[in-house]
């Protein structure tokens, strides 16, 4: 099953199903739920590159999502630039800022990286909330232009659906090529053992910055789609809570797994959104529920649901081992002397 999901055939089947959904006329509301999920599937993918492939626990993806949204909205509102230009500008802007932020961060241990990125997220919110002349603060930026390119304008939920489907599918395809190539392998080597990665010729700093650049590019592009789809940008859309959710998407869905990244977005966005009217508490308690699920998952599958192998970063592996020992599932690790004795036997 997992192998099928990760195969080219699995991806094709999934894509066909998604392409057929609007033809079954599910109604505007359900299409909207999937549209938002597809946008977040890009955020989830970006987070998964940084955390799942490269093993860095970054907790600031909402800031890059927001940076993309604001960049795109401001460029189109202020300068009337076409959507396509704003879209790529948003990605590039987030990518550059992400790469610059990662540079000093790479000098610290991975748990401090989380703290620094949390701080960045808060900083982004404070700036967006207070720079009245640029962002209009808490009032946000309304009337962001529609998605339009090459004479096509997206009006209905179905229009947006197909635009997002094409963009997200292309992004997943491009990422699958990178993660299946030498770059993805270099990221995984860094995640599993930096010292050994260096010894086989991997320029660790360069590849970590690259992971940030690509991951934040995707978040920025998603931000642009979000801004032009909802046609409104406001600071409270990019709170730290959203970063937590992005991290939970990556881990719950499956680290270093493309179907895992998509599943993460489905679990954290589609389900709560779909139940928004009947079960409003699901949205409110979402980060808490995600966190509780994570703790449970840490015990059995620290690498997440759809990952085919143990792709958890070192810190999550350690957390998992600690939890398992704590509840008595594993005994304490053998000492080197014990191991030697067993090996010699």
């Amino acid at each position: 099953m997992l192998d099928f999901l990760h195969s080219r055939r699995g991806a094709a089947v999934f894509l066909v199903i998604l392409a057929v959904i609007p033809l079954l006329d599910p109604g505007r509301y359900w299409l909207h739920v999937i549209n938002v999920t597809m946008i977040y599937a890009l955020v989830s993918l970006g987070q998964n590159i940084i955390t799942g492939w490269c093993g860095m626990l970054t907790l600031g993806q909402a800031a890059f999502f927001g940076l993309g949204a604001y960049t795109s909205a401001l460029l189109s509102l202020t300068f009337g630039l076409p959507f396509i230009v704003c879209f790529f500008a948003a990605g590039i802007m987030a990518s550059i800022v992400g790469a610059l932020l990662s540079l000093p961060c790479l000098r610290v241990r991975t748990d401090f990286l989380s703290l620094i990125t949390i701080a960045f997220n808060q900083l982004f919110f404070v700036v967006a909330n207070n720079w009245m002349s640029l962002t209009r603060g808490p009032m946000g930026l309304p009337q962001v232009p529609r998605i339009e390119f090459f004479g096509f304008a997206a009006w209905s939920a179905t229009d947006h659906y197909y635009v997002f489907l094409v963009i997200v599918a292309l992004a997943y395809f491009a990422v699958s090529r990178i993660t299946g190539g030498a770059t993805g392998r270099a990221w995984e080597m860094i995640r599993d053992d930096e010292v050994a990665a260096r010894a086989v010729g991997v320029d660790v700093v360069r590849y970590k910055v690259l992971a940030f650049a690509v991951g934040c590019f995707l978040a920025g592009c998603a931000g642009s789609l979000f801004a032009h789809y909802l046609r409104l940008v406001s600071p409270d859309m990019f709170l730290l809570e959203e970063s937590l959710i992005a991290m939970q998407m990556a881990i719950l869905g499956g680290l270093a797994s493309l179907p895992g990244a998509a599943l993460g977005a489905f679990l954290m966005i589609a389900i709560p959104e779909a139940l928004r009217s009947s079960e409003p508490w699901l949205i409110t308690l979402r980060p808490g529920i995600g966190g509780a699920l994570l703790v449970i998952l840490m015990i059995w599958r620290p690498h997440g649901l759809l990952s085919r192998r143990n792709t958890a970063p070192q810190s999550l592996r350690a957390l998992s081992a600690w939890l398992r020992r704590g509840i008595g599932l594993d005994r304490a690790p053998r000492s080197p002397a014990e191991r030697d004795r067993d090996n010699l036997r």
Binding site: I178, G181, E188, T311
Partner: peptide, 28 residues
């Protein structure tokens, strides 16, 4: 110091990092 999340073959492939096609566009 092996790469534990990777198969034996991928571990060895990792050793060939410097000879592999590494450009993003090239890989895409």
């Amino acid at each position: 110091r092996l790469f534990e999340g990777m198969s034996a073959l991928e571990n060895v492939l990792g050793g060939g990092h410097l000879r592999a096609p590494r450009g993003l566009l090239e890989q895409m």
